[in-house]
Simulated assay, not measured.
Amino acid sequence: MLSDIHDYLASIPTFYLCLLLILLSAVPFVEAHITVPLGIMLGVPFPVCCLIGLSANFLSVMLAVKWMKKIKKDTYSFTRMDRAKVLGKRYGVPGLALMGPILGANHISAAAAVLLGASIRSIYFWQLVSISIWGIGTGFLFLHGMSLFKEGSF
């Protein structure tokens, strides 16, 4: 069944696969660290997957930060956000951004940084660093893990 789904998705033109990767990368909890390996698995070249995944994910995080700046700081009620605020006070914006996918989504860590009163420039910078490390890192590991698996070394 999974091979049928993979064969169907691999038969879709690359342009439409790229559009699918853009949409998936912008979704919280899916993000670039999942869509880059997915794109590689579907046959999209690694640099293209990275460019698409990182840019779409970063743009959606930017929108989340802008949205959080507009709402009132006392109106949130979310367990992950409470945990993110505690971690943000302990590790700052860099630690919060780098732990973003572990917290559930980079969007949550960016929103928590806004609630902590961090500057927008530092939030954007560290989110870009985090998304790049996680997206390129998982893609690189998947790409080389897949090649090891195909060679029979694994």
Results as ranks from 00 to 15, higher is better:
1 M>H: 15
1 M>R: 15
3 S>W: 10
4 D>F: 15
7 D>V: 01
10 A>V: 12
13 P>H: 08
13 P>T: 05
16 Y>A: 12
17 L>H: 01
18 C>E: 12
19 L>T: 07
20 L>E: 07
21 L>I: 14
22 I>P: 00
23 L>I: 13
23 L>G: 14
29 F>P: 01
30 V>S: 11
33 H>F: 14
37 P>G: 02
37 P>A: 05
42 L>S: 04
44 V>S: 04
44 V>I: 14
45 P>T: 11
46 F>I: 06
47 P>D: 09
50 C>G: 10
52 I>Y: 01
53 G>Q: 03
53 G>M: 05
54 L>Q: 08
56 A>V: 08
56 A>C: 12
58 F>M: 11
59 L>N: 08
61 V>Y: 02
62 M>R: 03
62 M>W: 10
63 L>P: 00
63 L>I: 11
64 A>G: 06
64 A>S: 11
66 K>Y: 11
67 W>K: 11
71 I>V: 13
72 K>M: 11
72 K>S: 15
74 D>R: 11
74 D>E: 13
74 D>C: 08
75 T>K: 14
75 T>V: 15
76 Y>I: 13
77 S>G: 12
82 D>T: 11
82 D>F: 08
82 D>K: 14
84 A>V: 01
84 A>L: 02
86 V>G: 01
86 V>L: 09
87 L>S: 02
88 G>E: 00
88 G>M: 03
88 G>A: 05
91 Y>M: 06
91 Y>Q: 03
94 P>F: 09
94 P>G: 07
96 L>Q: 00
97 A>W: 00
98 L>S: 07
102 I>C: 00
105 A>P: 00
109 S>R: 02
109 S>D: 02
109 S>L: 06
111 A>Q: 02
112 A>T: 02
112 A>K: 00
115 L>V: 09
115 L>H: 03
118 A>T: 06
119 S>T: 13
119 S>Y: 13
121 R>K: 15
124 Y>W: 12
125 F>H: 05
125 F>Q: 06
125 F>N: 06
125 F>G: 04
126 W>S: 03
127 Q>D: 14
130 S>E: 03
131 I>V: 15
136 I>K: 09
140 F>E: 04
141 L>M: 14
144 H>V: 09
145 G>E: 10
145 G>H: 08
146 M>Q: 10
146 M>E: 13
151 E>Y: 07
151 E>M: 12
152 G>R: 08
153 S>H: 07
153 S>N: 07
154 F>K: 06
